[in-house]
């Protein structure tokens, strides 16, 4: 159970796969990415362009390379409408409250992911280093809430919220999302802690570290990649969560997915461009977080696959 470091793993040519495979990968990636691309493009379309068949995939300025009837005139109209617009023909322009909903989404998802990370990491360390009698049973119990479809779990949860008066409050939805992120966080982080060499911790103990410092100075820095990976996955799950938010948030605490669903409808039919604009804005925070944690994330996801 000794680990050796392998310097050879460090440097690997980026283009080792060659052009042929890279192109294949690009094509497959494009297919994967197409739904997202479609939404982003739609966000810049006028209502009629959004509904046009054949689908207009290219903005006007690309007309020199594609048939003209496949192009549309880009507009920022939809993005403005996300935040303020008139709700029926001729009515006054109104604030939509979406700035509030975006804030809610960021606040609720961010807070609950951080809280889950904090509690979950400590719990995972406990499960990994100080196993209880019947450790696996506890780990299993923790996972059970994620074994049922949300639609089933929601019934007792709603009851609990009703009794405790947490319905419609930030505290309520944050606690719920935290509880929902915890199983995943604990299982992920436990596997990261399990991977660490116990000798390294013992070395720190002999070097004079208290248990607390062993955790903060030795263990935690080694699982930063794991923390990043867990945070991103948790964030994506929480960010996009719809059902619980729909039933357990109030007007004040509504998140974007719920608000978005309520945008569908109205007297002029579904405004696809507007919806796409909301979704596009909604994508940005997750993309930013993922982008900034990307290096850590890659290390985190591949952690433990290489015998050190």
């Amino acid at each position: 159970m000794f680990f050796r470091f392998n310097a050879k793993d460090q440097a690997r040519e980026v283009d080792q796969a060659g052009w042929g495979r890279t192109i294949w990968a690009a094509i497959i990636s494009l297919i994967y990415f197409f739904p997202v691309l479609f939404i982003v493009i739609t966000a810049f379309k006028e209502h009629t362009d959004a509904l046009a068949v054949p689908v207009k995939l290219f903005p006007e300025f690309m007309a020199f390379m594609v048939p003209e009837d496949l192009t549309f005139k880009p507009t920022f109209h939809n993005f403005v409408d996300v935040f303020s617009r008139s709700f029926s023909a001729g009515a006054a322009v109104q604030d939509t409250g979406f700035d509030r909903f975006f804030f809610n989404s960021v606040y609720i998802a961010g807070f609950s992911v951080l809280l889950a990370l904090l509690i979950g990491t400590l719990a995972a360390f406990g499960f990994s280093r100080y196993p209880l009698k019947g450790n696996d049973t506890y780990l299993f119990v923790i996972l059970t809430t994620r074994m049922l479809p949300a639609i089933v779990v929601i019934i007792p949860v709603m009851l609990m919220f009703r009794v405790t008066g947490l319905s419609g409050t930030y505290t309520g939805i944050i606690l719920l999302y935290t509880a929902f992120n915890l199983p995943f966080t604990i299982w992920m982080m436990k596997s990261f802690f399990d991977e660490l060499s116990p000798d390294v911790e013992d070395a720190a103990r002999i070097d004079g570290s208290s248990e607390r410092r062993v955790f903060f100075k030795i263990c935690l820095p080694q699982v930063l990649a794991g923390l990043a990976a867990t945070a991103v996955f948790g964030l994506i799950l929480t960010w996009n969560e719809f059902l619980f938010a729909l039933l357990l948030t109030g007007v004040e605490t509504r998140t974007v997915p719920v608000a978005m669903s309520q945008t569908i409808g109205g007297d002029i039919g579904v405004r696809w461009g507007l919806l796409a604009a909301i979704e596009t804005l909604f994508l940005i925070p997750v993309i930013l977080v993922t982008f900034f944690l990307q290096n850590q994330l890659l290390r985190g996801v591949t952690f433990g696959t290489v015998k050190r």
Binding site: F2, P221, Q222
Partner: peptide, 14 residues
């Protein structure tokens, strides 16, 4: 007053 060298070296990897 004891120091130890481990078989695995147990260096702090970070």
């Amino acid at each position: 007053g004891v120091a130890m060298v481990f078989q695995s070296f147990a260096l702090y990897p970070h």
